[in-house]
Design a binder for these strands. Structure first.
Length: 566
RNA sequence: UGGGGCGUAGCCAAGUGGUAAGGCACCGGGUUUUGGUCCCGGCAUCCGGAGGUUCGAAUCCUCCCGCCCCAGCCA
């Protein structure tokens, strides 16, 4: 029945262990989880972990996962975010089927339950100001003191609460509070606020309400209404659990869900806080929520990261309770791993240097057959035009090469990938001694890249025919933050922003087939990295984003060399 | 000097009394028409520290140290 006996190296974790035990021992008949975003910003890579855990566990145990918007604070929530969230989760590869819910759909029920608590003497309307409430709450080491309104008769609270709903009072003038324990060592149990007055237009309920439930009063009950069995959230909600349980126990809810907490994800060179990401957007540090340097799912998609790589990463970091900061290299590894297997190879030259093959017939054009993916023979091959003048990467030539540089140099022979061996005969410079062109000769016997005599050049270069290449803009991206731990210690996060995290190269040239590449497709520019068309790309004005570079041993050697000189 | 959570290699993370999985990163070596991929090898005598129980402990007990969360009418 279940796949518990599967020989697959199933990764398990403490939550899956709990779920399995609940199922085995009959505490639950089936598994129902939920992913509960608040539509007050875009989803980021941290949410990916929560999404993968919730949808993944439901999938593993044959249950289901709901998508529920925790839309209880209209002051911060917007339709744009709601749309983006749905789009991003679908893109990640998850499906909530017909199970799309909104906490706002439960407002009437929640209101009735609030009344129920008041009638039971377990909640009261408090007329204190926010400041007074704060002052009475005490501190972690000192107990709080009761509000002067704490023992107000239930009838009076009932009347006031109804009038709060009716709109008789201004924002902030009164709140509904649970009557629990002002001296509790758990701050969340010191008579938590249940409802506040907010005369704000709600994306879904419009102006039907001017009082809105707080997270604690809405979340668990929403879980109960939907029959959620395992309510999974991050560790900072651990202290809320007694309150979560208190509502489940003191209200006539239809089911009794349980909350479990796991550690949230952190990543080096990255900041994952909606508040901060919103500032980056609003203050113009990036192109928007989906700027390729942002950690949002929308941005990673625009950057060319495949959803599969994000899911693999979520699996790789695991589910545990210890604070953690995953190295961004782990994410990059997962992305490269997927792309290496699936991305078609193409030729693109970022910093073009002209090569003229003197003995190659003028006007002649050959269609060279180039494999689309050496990792995947079924990907076939394509024709790439070759002619007398080609562009190569400026970095692939050195007039006076150091020992370990085995690319093109004066007098040296290299292979032009899937084309011919060429030998550099002359270096042409302009008046400023800048190299403007290389004159080479070629070996006609090496067509396709193999020499009949078994000669094997130490380097293979990518190229683009000058007569056929298509101009393109390429945007290179690196980590938004220089520091592995932005804002660590007393540093200002903004000081860690790397102004060089985006570099735009305006004069690149790519092979003709790339003009047809569509947004959403990521290819490998051989020897350079993975690239994808940016949504701003247009026919005649191609724009590519660099997803990631390939691993680059040569660059590493150069970096080490520079260090050695110091 | 309140409550809660957590401490296994540079990073993530298995392990729950029988003598430290795996991945990332890193360092070698091989293959290679991508200095990519792939393959092979190396990388914790030790599990925050100190005691104790036991034939035997990362796993049990005691004390200590450190880090994170909680004082929104945010979620």
């Amino acid at each position: 029945m279940s796949s518990e006996t599967s020989n697959a190296p199933e990764r398990t974790d403490f939550i899956r262990d709990i779920v399995a035990a609940d199922l085995r021992e009959g505490r639950v008949a089936g598994v129902v989880t939920r992913f509960p975003p608040e539509p007050n910003g875009y989803l980021h890579i941290g949410h990916t972990k929560a999404i993968c855990i919730n949808f993944g566990i439901a999938e593993d145990f044959g249950g289901r996962c709901h998508l529920r918007f925790d839309d209880t604070n209209p002051a911060k929530e917007e339709q744009e975010y709601i749309d983006a969230i749905e789009r991003d989760i679908r893109w990640l590869g998850f499906d909530w089927g017909g199970h799309l819910y909104h906490a706002s759909s439960y407002f009437e029920q929640l209101y009735e339950w609030a009344v129920y608590l008041v009638e039971a003497g377990k909640a009261y309307v408090d007329d204190q100001t926010a400041e007074e409430i704060r002052a009475h709450r005490g501190t972690p080491t000192e107990p709080g003191r009761p509000s002067p309104w704490r023992d107000r008769p239930a009838d009076e609270s009932l009347d006031l609460f109804a009038r709060m709903r009716a709109g008789e009072f201004p924002d902030g003038s009164r709140v509904l509070r649970a009557r629990i324990d002002m001296a509790s060592p758990n701050m969340h149990l010191r008579d938590p606020v249940l409802y506040r007055i907010l005369h704000a237009e709600h994306p879904r309920t419009g102006d039907a309400w001017c009082i809105y439930p707080m997270y604690d009063f809405a979340h668990g009950q929403s879980d109960a209404i939907e029959g959620i069995t395992h309510s999974l959230c991050s560790l900072e909600f651990k202290d809320h659990r007694p309150l979560y349980d208190w509502f489940i126990e003191n209200l006539p809810v239809p089911s009794a869900p349980h909350q479990y907490e796991f550690a949230r994800l952190n990543i080096t060179h990255t900041v994952l806080s909606k508040r901060f990401l919103l500032r980056l957007v609003n203050e113009g540090h990036v192109r928007g929520w989906d700027d390729p340097r942002m950690p949002t799912i929308s941005a990673l998609r625009r950057r060319g990261f495949p959803a599969e790589g994000l899911r693999d990463f979520a699996t790789m970091v695991g589910v545990a309770k210890a604070d953690n900061v995953a190295e961004v290299e782990m994410l990059e590894h997962c992305v490269r791993d997927v792309l290496n297997r699936k991305a078609p190879r193409r030729f693109g030259v970022l910093d073009p240097l002209k090569v003229v093959i003197e003995d190659y017939p003028e006007g002649k054009v050959e269609e060279m057959d180039v494999p689309n993916n050496p990792e995947d023979p079924s990907a076939g091959s394509r024709k790439v035009p070759f002619s007398r003048e080609v562009w190569i990467e400026r970095d692939d030539f050195m007039e006076d090469p150091p020992r370990k540089f085995f690319r093109l140099a004066p007098g040296r022979e290299v292979r032009l990938r899937a084309a011919y061996f060429v030998t550099c005969r002359e270096v042409v410079k302009d008046g400023d001694r800048r190299i403007v062109e290389l004159r080479c000769t070629y070996d006609p016997a090496t067509r396709g890249g193999d020499a009949p005599d078994g000669r094997r050049p130490k380097a293979t270069l990518h190229w683009v025919s000058a007569a056929h290449g298509v101009p393109a803009e390429v945007r290179l991206y690196t980590h938004l933050f220089r520091s592995p731990h932005p804002g660590a210690g007393d540093a200002d996060v903004f000081d860690d922003l790397d102004p060089g995290s985006e570099r735009v190269l305006a004069r690149c040239v790519v092979e003709p087939s790339l003009a047809e590449l569509r947004v959403g497709e990521t290819v490998q520019f051989e020897r350079l990295g993975y690239f994808c068309p940016d949504p701003e790309s247009a026919p005649g004005a191609l724009v590519f984003n660099r997803t990631l570079t390939l691993k680059d041993t040569w660059a590493k050697l150069q970096a080490q060399g520079r260090q050695d000189k110091v």
